[in-house]
Nucleic acid binder design. Structure first.
Lengths: 341, 341
DNA sequence: AATCACCCGCAAAACGATTTGCATGGTCCC
DNA sequence: GGGACCATGCAAATCGTTTTGCGGGTGATT
């Protein structure tokens, strides 16, 4: 750890202040009272030596590291940094720092990372498992570890979890368009049952879409549901298939913004005006959504609120111990109206 | 750290294998030879108890944590996750994990984070300081800490550093356009000497631009250099100022992609075709660059290569000790031609 | 004056690994 | 047979904290 060999220790401070290490520790932690006089001397010695307690030693004894692990699929993917940022902002206040790791959705990597983190004694884990089940994750981190899982399923998981209510934002989107007289809705989902549960977005959002259309009292036409990879080009291709038909929808909702941006391009190529000929709405509200032309109307996936909720859940769990019942948080999504719908 | 109270220790493994903890340690580390027979028994016991060494205890004794600190301005800003990813990919192989923290460019936060990380005994620090000088950073982390600073200055810093050669990509851009007959170049920089050295991009890239134009044997016209905040709208406004003139440039290079995207919009509003009437090139190659219409031609700021170099530098420094001379790495930037120029 | 309750400080035992020094028993080579 | 050497194992010290048990003062209450 590249410590200075002569970095001051609690012993050197104690010596300088003419007391025992115990007293220094108590002066710092406040676990026992220390006379104002000696505290004074101790603080002065600390100041002079520029002493900072060694957290590794402290952690070994106290079994707390004031750190958490963030285990994500890929922090280069814009969604995760936003979540991580939300987590940080809450946890930093409490003096926690965070480890962060990428799994790339690989089971072996997920396992290895979790083990490395627990071996380092983190006080909690925030994870979006891709390959492992929640139960397996729990198995790896141990029964007492505060664990919050980011995901959709509110089913039985041996962990706290936070998710988003995708249907809600989609419902807002449908309502918004219905108010403008749109009645024919299409949807572009991710690849049908792609990699095993990959991202677990597929299906969920399509289901939300069906619910939203039905809730508006409109008919959902299965032939207007298309599939593409979660990427611009896939979205463009899927949208083109939709737009080429004789009877095409008046609006296309998309399972994510990349698909929607592809759809924007397909519309432009087809010579259609957005939103007048065809309305397009995305999902997630990535930064790019506000940068394309026309600016994308989209459902915001509240990443930093998710991070915030994860952090609060960890804190709450640390506070309340492993026996408190699991806590499930679901965050609303909402429509942000820009130019494309 | 929420360890299971009865988590196996080296002692429990030793007991089960009928040897001493010393022997288990040696069997694991290979620092001394252990007979095949006893090693066998030890491994079996480890397997049965599912023993994983406690890294905190190990770190206390060995003074190594197999972890590094990544201290960035804001991991929600797309540049940093890409760097972080590059660092991870190299370091993960060696069994390192990383702490990550956001400073928001605030001096006090930079200091606090560095202290928290060093107190946790990280084996190295990768940082892009915003408010603190390299010397102050070195002061905080201590003389022996492997420290790599990401930045432009190749000047005297008490640290290893990695930076990018911005001029090179800009020179490519100018050459590319000159080849198509463009001779009149404008530039939109960030805000002039904004927040004290904020991002330190301002000026550097403008200087690179001047050098690039001069290198092509063309004249640089100061009146075609504009300033805007590093954001879309600022870029649009600055570009509008440039485009409104009677004599306007034929191409606009921008200090970052956000500005360039704003310029794209300004051009569209002015009824100008890109790239035929006005060529626009960005800088950084953020993900959005490939998502806007027309796709942005831009200079790629090789974030993940920067991360890669940082990681290798840390590893090298850990290997070679604090007395090896400082190592400076500068990475080339290059032009990626898409549609806007 | 005896009791009780605090206050304040110290010594020593953890926490769970690594590392050093020592002991034992061979083997090998003159 | 004796020295040199290696392989193998253990006991104990160590890393830098926190925490527990103990005890000597001091002041207030009976």
């Amino acid at each position: 750890m590249s410590r200075d060999p002569d970095r001051p220790s609690i012993a050197s401070v104690a010596a300088a202040a003419g007391v025992s290490p115990t007293t220094v520790s108590h002066a710092l932690s406040g676990k026992r009272t220390v006379s104002a006089d000696t505290r004074e001397r101790i603080l002065k010695a600390i100041e002079e030596q520029n002493y900072r307690p060694n957290m590794v030693a402290r952690s070994l004894r106290s079994r707390k590291t004031q750190s958490v692990a963030l285990v994500f699929v890929d922090i280069a993917n814009p969604y995760y940094p936003a979540v991580a940022r939300g987590v940080h902002d809450v946890l930093a206040i409490e003096g926690y720092v965070s480890f962060i790791g990428n799994t790339d959705g690989d089971a072996e990597t997920e396992r290895r990372l979790l083990e490395e983190m627990t071996a380092r004694g983190v006080d909690g884990v925030v994870m979006q498992p891709m390959a492992l089940s929640a139960a397996e994750v729990r198995e790896i981190v141990g029964p007492a570890m505060p664990l919050v899982i980011i995901g959709h399923e509110t089913s039985e998981m041996p962990a706290d979890c936070v998710g988003t209510d995708d249907t809600r934002g989609l419902t807002e989107a449908v309502a918004h368009l219905a108010r403008k007289g749109v009645r024919d809705f299409g949807f572009i989902d991710g690849p049908p049952e792609s990699v095993t549960g990959s991202l677990r977005l597929t299906g969920f959002r399509a289901a939300g879409f069906r619910g939203a259309v039905a809730a508006a009292g409109l008919e959902v036409r299965e032939r207007w549901i298309e599939y593409g990879p979660f990427a611009r080009d896939g979205g463009a291709a899927a949208a083109a298939r939709l737009l080429d038909r004789a009877d095409r929808p008046r609006a296309i909702l998309c399972a994510n913004d990349l698909i929607a941006i592809g759809a924007l391009e397909a519309a432009r190529r087809a010579g259609l005006r957005v939103p007048d000929d065809i309305a397009i709405v995305g999902f997630d509200d990535i930064e790019t959504a506000d940068l394309v032309t026309p600016r994308l109307t989209t459902v915001v996936n509240p990443a930093s609120a998710v991070g915030d909720a994860c952090a609060r859940t960890i804190l709450w769990r640390v506070e309340n111990g492993p026996d408190a019942p699991y806590r499930r948080t679901v965050l609303p999504t909402r429509l942000v109206v820009r130019e494309s719908a």
